[in-house]
Design a protein around this nucleic acid. Sequence first.
DNA 1: CGCTTGCTTCGAGCGCACTCGAAGGTCTTA
DNA 2: TAAGACCTTCGAGTGCGCTCGAAGCAAGCG
Lengths: 154, 154
Amino acid sequence: MTVAQVAKSKPSNTVNCADSETHLRPDGQDQYTISEVADFTGLSAHTLRWYERIGLMPHVDRSHTGQRRFSNKDLDWLAFVGKLRLTGMPVADMVTYAELVRAGDQTFAARQALLESTRVDVVNRIAELQDTLTVLDHKISTYACAHRAPERTA
Amino acid sequence: MTVAQVAKSKPSNTVNCADSETHLRPDGQDQYTISEVADFTGLSAHTLRWYERIGLMPHVDRSHTGQRRFSNKDLDWLAFVGKLRLTGMPVADMVTYAELVRAGDQTFAARQALLESTRVDVVNRIAELQDTLTVLDHKISTYACAHRAPERTA
DNA sequence: CGCTTGCTTCGAGCGCACTCGAAGGTCTTA
DNA sequence: TAAGACCTTCGAGTGCGCTCGAAGCAAGCG
């Protein structure tokens, strides 16, 4: 509830080192309907509403008639969530992270820990994939060989 | 049906270049019950039967009483399937590959193509993950910064 | 004013990859 | 020969991540 406001009151320095987020979108006006966001992110409107319902999005602003108005901050968040999704992190864990964010600054350490463990997962996954790649290449090369030596099928 | 026999009649040269498959298991006796295979692979007996049902396994030999007797070749296949699974390939696609294998030598080209396209997927996925890793590291470093500069919360 | 478009909520449905349970046959060991 | 483990098949159930449909409100246009 207040989270959105708080977020808005801090243009770009939620953290304050080498921060380069909140790239304003072309029109730069920080107000997007759900279908605009759907187009932009590739997620369906249904999915966006679902994300909010399950707590994977901070509560999105509403227009005076109750329609969602997404901000650039929301888009940034969605982009980040998209990255987490790529890591294969379960939605439930992303929700946990989102809850930490909503809980405020005192959860920095917990969030960092969560991201670090995710990082480890990603690194492992990459190693796994690279290993798989080796197997794949080996297999592919055997097919290539079979091509070159088509004799002795019997 | 005949597939199993054919497979067995070719000790280790299905393809014939630098072939180093079929590492005999400790007891080396080429006959495993479903629960042994389950232990070995980490898959459940249910899943193994399911793999066979959907055509992801060549039909497994049976004992005179109808119980499954897995061969080393089957274990090799399962290991390979495990790798494919790691790539995120849908089971349906693996079944397609399995069908190609069962169809015989004239599908070498198709199989090679399938593996090569999988290879591309894996490479892309790795790139994606590496990209994600960058984002993650950036985010983690901002948390680290926030720790070092705890002032200016207001 | 009525119509279309697009939003709202809620709850049900879907596809995937298993996962499990039931009912029954078989193998081994006492 | 009887108990208990372990196998068989078949079909139903589960959990996840969406995905969709229905019913209804609101804005904007001719």
